[in-house]
Simulated scan of single mutants.
Amino acid sequence: MNVAITGGHVVPVAGTPIEGGTVLVQDGRIVAVGAAVPVPDGVPVVDATGKWVLPGFVEAHGHLGVHEEGEGWAGQDTNEMTDPNGARLRALDAVNPADPGFADALSGGVTSVVIKPGSGNVIGGRTVAVKCWGRTVDEMVVREPVSVKSALGENPKRVYGDQKKLPSTRQGVAAVIRDAFTKAQDYVARRDAAEGGPFERDNTLETLARVLSGELPWCQHCHRADDIATALRLADEFGYRLIVNHGTEGHLIADLLADKNIPVVVGPLFTTRSKVELRHRTLRTPGVLARAGVEIAITTDHPVVPIHFLVHQATLAMKEGLDRTTALESITTNPARMMGLADRVGSLTPGLDGDVVIWSGDPLDVLSRAERVYIEGREVYRHENGEPVVANPYYVEP
């Protein structure tokens, strides 16, 4: 799809803002961003004078489509809580594009989301990055798998402790992870020894082998500082790439995270302190981590916090000490880079997907709204006459 968005205050995020700039998208990709971009004949022109133009936001940790809204049990596919090691599970297989959360995402300027299994299992499964518009998840995929989800702390010990099964303590949770990677190491040794000959494959261990090789990062759900320390310990022991998810008490050990160069997906921030792990939750955490030198992304953990509030979380984190530049990066370039998606999304850069949002004003002002949203150059959302209009992905032009 082709479009030229002209005359707006263009904020590429990965570059200097351009007053009266143009973003040119052809065949679904950004081909030019600048103050004097010639528009080829036949390319539709959208006048964004007086508006702000930004890349689509990237949600680094959500459950869109697997934890559907308004569906109850029928739409709840977040956790396969029958085996603490669900490494073979794929979020891809449970995503329903008809979840209304996808339309909400567009209304908040979110065009890409990394969908993850839940935190009921110690090892939840493979994550997938998708665009927030499409008929089938296969059409929406940006990359699969993106990472492997794992959980420490209260959730898995509650789920399996209630069943009187391993794990019922933090010791047990760590042991499940350690045992899984030990088996994966042995599996890799046997696979290598087979030298391409007959070999009994195991989907669970194949996934963990990709973590051990460094191909896939390990997205570790952990809130308390002691659980974050366990995440660091296990990552050091097995040598995998760690991304801390939630990091509620990350501000208490920000220097340790910075020293080890561990990125943190922070949030959700708009919640009550509903369990022990959250008793130190604060909007100051993103700013403390960033000032310590930790790369951060901000998450809604949708549907814990509605996904269209992603930018508002960044705004309130900024109010509590996060600098403006990092606030925007935390929902664009940072999550894209953390999740290995920076070659596709996260900024207005030539070569990337044409995911562009026209805002009525500064998106970090809570009164601004996303007025038009483009995914790969196709207009998929518009707000006009006080009403949102989402393009129907099932409509095929005659």
Rank of each mutant, 00 (worst) to 15 (best):
P12L: 12
P286L: 07
H223D: 06
E154R: 14
A254T: 08
Q76L: 12
M338C: 04
I30V: 09
A129I: 11
L341A: 05
G118P: 05
N392Q: 06
L24P: 02
T332Y: 10
D77T: 08
L232A: 06
L232N: 03
L89T: 02
L289E: 01
S330D: 07
N261S: 09
R382S: 13
V110R: 03
G172T: 07
V46K: 12
A174K: 13
H67G: 00
E249A: 05
A94L: 04
V130P: 00
D93H: 12
G354R: 13
I18T: 06
G101Y: 08
V113C: 10
R281S: 09
R224M: 12
G70C: 07
V176P: 02
F57Y: 14
A60K: 04
E387Y: 10
A292W: 03
G153D: 03
K260G: 00
V66C: 02
R190V: 02
P303K: 12
A180D: 11
A209H: 09
G377C: 04
L92G: 01
L252F: 07
Q171W: 14
G50R: 10
G118W: 09
T332Q: 11
Y381N: 01
T271S: 05
R233W: 12
D93R: 14
L242Q: 09
G134R: 14
D99V: 04
G108S: 08
V58E: 02
H221M: 09
R224G: 02
V265R: 02
A314S: 02
